[in-house]
Simulated assay, not measured.
Amino acid sequence: MNPEDSKLQSDFTKPLTRVRLLFRNPISLAGAALALVSLANILFLFLIDLLSEKPSPYIGILAYMVGPTFLILALVLIPLGIWFDRRRRRAQRPGTTLRYLRIDFNDPSQRGVFAFFFSFVIVFIMLSVVGSYRAYEFTDSVQFCGQLCHSVMNPEFTAYQLSPHARVACVECHVGAGASWYVRSKLSGARQVFATAFNTYPRPIPTPVHNLRPAPETCEECHWPKRFYGAQLKVFTHYASDEKNTPRQIRMLLKTGGGDPSTGSPAGIHWHMNISNEITYIAGDDKRQAIPYIHVKDMQGRITEYMSKDSPLTKEQIEKLPRRRMDCVDCHNRPTHIYVPPDRAVDESLLAGR
Rank of each mutant, 00 (worst) to 15 (best):
L51H: 00
P57F: 02
M65E: 08
R99H: 08
A33G: 05
A135N: 15
I42C: 10
V129Q: 07
I122N: 04
M65W: 15
S52G: 01
F23S: 01
P108F: 07
T97M: 08
A74N: 02
L16P: 01
G60T: 04
S38R: 06
L21P: 13
L127A: 03
R134I: 15
R24M: 07
A91N: 04
R102Y: 11
W83P: 13
I42Q: 10
S109F: 03
A115K: 12
I78P: 02
F70Q: 07
L101S: 04
F105Q: 11
I42M: 10
S38G: 04
L29F: 12
M65N: 05
T96C: 04
R90E: 08
I61R: 01
E53L: 09
Y100W: 13
R87M: 11
G95L: 14
L127M: 11
A40L: 14
L43T: 07
R102K: 15
I72T: 08
L98W: 00
P55A: 01
A91V: 11
S56M: 07
Q110W: 05
S28P: 14
G112V: 06
L127P: 11
I72C: 08
L43E: 06
W83N: 10
T17K: 03
I78N: 07
R99V: 00
G131C: 08
L47C: 11
L80G: 05
G112W: 08
F118G: 06
L16V: 03
I27K: 04
A35L: 12
A74T: 01
G67M: 13
G81D: 11
A32F: 15
L36C: 07
I82W: 05
Q110K: 08
L62W: 08
L75H: 00
P55Q: 04
S128E: 00
S38T: 13
L51W: 00
Y133D: 01
V76D: 10
F44W: 09
L29C: 00
A91R: 01
R111Y: 00
L77A: 09
I125C: 02
L29N: 04
L75S: 00
F117V: 06
S119E: 05
L21G: 12
Q92L: 15
L47A: 12
L39A: 12
L127Q: 06
L29W: 15
M65H: 14
I82T: 10
L21Q: 12
R20Q: 14
V66W: 02
